[in-house]
């Protein structure tokens, strides 16, 4: 088992944990953290699986850098929305969805 594969496997575990967090946790801040965990997991898989030769592959590195930028933007947006929701309702959880 190569190091890269171990990284990838760890990434997959992190990703799964992250998804579980986003889906199951009610607290919005923790959900955002879970999302970041999910993203990091995916990046780890990307870099890990590409590490088959001894030479580092620059393409996944470039992709991960781009991915991090996207994740930061998404996190910023999520935090802004959570703040707004907190300001409006005083809560850090999502209210139920009603059609009336």
């Amino acid at each position: 088992m190569s190091t890269g594969f171990v990284f990838a496997l760890a990434g997959a575990v992190l990703f799964s944990l992250g998804v579980a967090g986003v889906v199951l946790i009610g607290h919005l801040l923790r959900r955002i953290l879970a999302f970041n965990l999910m993203g990091s997991g995916a990046f780890l898989v990307l870099v890990g699986l590409a590490q088959r030769q001894d030479v580092a592959d620059p393409v996944p590195q470039a992709m991960v850098l781009t991915g991090i930028v996207v994740a930061v933007a998404a996190t910023a947006l999520a935090l802004a929305l959570v703040r707004k929701l907190h300001a409006l309702t005083g809560q850090l959880g999502l209210p139920g969805d009603v059609d009336e």
């Binding site: 990434g11 990703f15 995916a42 898989v45 990307l46 699986l49 590409a50 996944p60």
Partner: peptide, 15 residues
């Protein structure tokens, strides 16, 4: 979550 799953798929494809 949707695009995360997609991204993981892309990572596997690249792998």
């Amino acid at each position: 979550v949707g695009s995360g799953a997609y991204l993981l798929g892309v990572a596997l494809i690249y792998g």
